[in-house]
Design a protein around this nucleic acid. Structure first.
Length: 587
RNA sequence: GGAGCUGUGGUGAAGUUGGAGUUCACGCCGGCCUGUCACGCCGGAGGUCGCGGGUUCGAGCCCCGUCAGCUCCGCCA
């Protein structure tokens, strides 16, 4: 066969008169009886080839046998089309290739679905035949975008003096965090490696090693249940730096991400990014990854309703809870059934109930209405900026719960009511995360991020007295309601680390047992350092305007973590198990 | 672990009150067709209605179970 001199998509009027050889797949054959048109596709695009029985009888004869997705080699001349046959919908529509020779390089079975962007096919079929699915231009473009993002990140970070260092895939299982994927050791009977959830400890070790600036585009694994934006194996852009002012570091990361947006999808992003403290994000949006593309902010009514005749409100506030509301503009006309639907959704998120008020011309409707006094009602109207025609939703619960439930409702309502503007990218940093979270079940404090995250200096004394209120030098980059990445400044001073472990209920000796080698390493001169990890898949998903992580990954897993293409996971031979000293249990 | 939705020729759908595997579009196969690009026209083939059980004289349709996919809760940072 002949190999290409040009790609299909690059051809234009500038090539008219030239001989060309193309390789590609048959997108479509149109046989007019005499003339045969072939749309030939490669990664770059589609071009029309015309086979004329008078001009090239041999080639036309072969073209008759051609079917969709056959692989062809075509030799011919680029000619401009006559005015009336120009196809303005095609990038290459002003020209066509007059075939001299057509070679069927490989035949193809009829594909299970058409290789076109807008075909609706069940995802099972797409995943089973992923190699065909990936022929679709949209899928190819997403993978190309992904490649570009990786390229830009690599060049940006290299430019800033970061070194890409690989860290082990076979590593040690750690008790904290997500469930590990385990790999049995053949050599060490009864022992297991874990696949990394992230290279966290290694990148800090590299700081102790004096690498100063490290990054890695690295696969990470977490054996937890999947979501549309969560895969069991995913890719992180992992970054860590020593001797770098946190502010300088954050600004560097902003620039990287803003440049990415502009250089890949041409979307200009202004820096510096908006900043919100965790507290502000929770109070205003009920989320630590707020979607800032629309309003409908949460309003705290606790003070106004603490003496309310509506017992649920009054007693919630009396017990340290909060009463919050959102104003669903212009939806007072909803039926009881519609409102109840949202009550069910609120309950799904753990709310005890959803109180509501519809502000109508004839008066206020809703189960809460009759309990509210005149002043109370006036205050609420003012605080929520409610007008006639608005619908108010209330959640009364513990402070965090009431915010989170309403935050979820806020996002879902906005989607439902189509309030989210398209093509908008609202980046922000969320800062001052809580350092610790209390686990009721275990009856102890856990590190919210990880145990090496530095507390804020001014909160250090609180570590002994009020651990729950200690803020961390931790930050998340958020975009449109998604967490793009998160990081922190790490503890590098021994006395702070000891205070941290005391708060977690460990002695230094116990901590060493748990986190051994990192703490050992820290005793040999750890520099001040901090870093961040971005979710590459999510970045690509958002840049590509997709709502599903699978579309950004060449060979993704289904919701039950299996691969429909390879049929993984699967049973293995008994002798494989024997070598690994494994016997399967009944339950 | 739980909830919801979906499952019908290769693909996407429709399928009435439970009455013959019925229908539509695309695709596929054959024939005709020299300017199509959603080519057109004529003809044809193609089915374990996801799977198993039950109710019934009779099930794509009703009931129970189960599997798979998707979305969500729990889980996960």
């Amino acid at each position: 066969m002949r190999y290409r001199t040009h790609t299909c998509g690059e051809l234009n009027e500038g090539h008219v008169g030239k001989m060309t050889t193309l390789n590609g797949w048959v997108q479509k054959r149109r046989d007019l009886g005499g003339l045969i048109f072939l749309d030939v596709r490669d990664r770059s695009g589609i071009v029309q080839v015309v086979c004329n029985p008078e001009h090239a009888p041999e080639a036309t004869k072969i073209a008759e046998k051609v079917r969709s997705e056959f692989v062809l080699a075509i030799q011919g001349q680029v000619v401009s089309r006559s005015e009336e046959t120009i196809n303005k919908k095609m990038k290459t529509g002003a020209i066509e290739i007059v075939a001299e020779e057509v070679e069927i390089v490989n035949e193809a079975k009829t594909p299970p679905f058409a290789v076109e962007d807008d075909v609706e096919v069940d995802e099972t079929t797409r995943l089973k035949h992923r190699y065909i699915d990936l022929r679709r231009p949209m899928m190819q473009n997403t993978l190309i975008l992904r490649h570009q993002v990786m390229q830009k990140v690599r060049s940006f970070l290299s430019e800033e003096g970061f070194i890409e260092v690989e860290t082990p895939m076979l590593t040690k299982s750690t008790p904290e965090g997500a469930r590990d994927y385990l790999v049995p050791s053949r050599v060490h009977k009864g022992e297991f490696y874990a696949l990394p959830q992230s290279p966290q400890i290694f990148k800090q070790l590299l700081m102790v090693s004096g690498m100063e600036r490290y990054f890695q585009i690295v696969r990470c694994f977490r054996d937890e249940d999947l979501r549309a934006d969560r895969q069991p194996e995913f890719t992180q852009i992992d970054i860590e730096a020593s001797f770098l002012e946190p502010e300088v570091f954050l600004s560097m990361m902003e620039t990287m991400v803003a440049d990415l947006c502009e250089e890949t999808i041409g979307h200009k992003v202004s820096t510096p990014f908006e900043r919100l403290t965790y507290k502000e994000a929770m109070n205003r949006f009920g989320s630590d990854r707020p979607d800032l593309r629309f309003d409908m902010e949460l309003v705290d009514l606790s003070e106004m309703v603490k003496e309310s005749g509506f017992q649920v409100f009054a007693s919630t506030v009396a017990n340290g809870g909060r009463v919050r509301a959102i104003n669903v503009k212009g939806q007072a006309g909803w039926s009881r059934k519609q409102v109840d639907e949202w009550g069910k959704i609120a309950q799904q998120f753990g709310a005890k109930g959803l109180a509501w008020l519809a502000v109508k011309e004839e008066g206020t409707k809703g189960p809460v209405a009759k309990f509210l006094g005149e002043t109370e009602w006036h205050d609420i109207m003012k605080a929520t900026e409610a007008e006639t025609g608005d619908l108010l939703f209330f959640i009364a619960d513990q402070p965090k719960k009431s915010a989170e439930v309403l935050g979820e409702l806020r996002v879902r309502l906005a989607k439902h009511l189509d309030l989210i503007p398209k093509g908008v990218f609202r980046f922000a940093w969320v800062t001052e995360f809580p350092l610790l979270a209390y686990d009721e079940e275990a009856d102890r404090w856990f590190a919210e991020h990880h145990p090496f995250t530095s507390p804020m200096d001014e909160d250090l004394p609180l570590l002994e007295t009020d651990p729950g209120s200690v803020r961390a030098k931790a930050y998340d980059m958020v975009l449109n309601g998604y967490e793009l990445g998160g990081g922190s400044q790490r503890i590098h001073r021994r006395e702070v680390q000891e205070a941290m472990f005391r708060a977690l209920g460990f002695t230094m000796e116990e901590a060493k047992e748990e986190f051994g080698f990192l703490l050992d390493a820290f005793e040999y001169g750890a520099p001040p350092h901090g870093g961040v990890a971005f979710g590459l898949d999510r970045i690509v998903m958002l840049l590509a305007g997709r709502s599903n992580l699978r579309d950004t990954i060449a060979f993704p897993k289904t919701a039950s973590a299996s691969c429909l293409l390879t049929d993984a996971p699967s049973a293995v031979e008994e002798n494989q198990l024997r070598e690994l000293h494994i016997s399967l249990r009944e339950s």
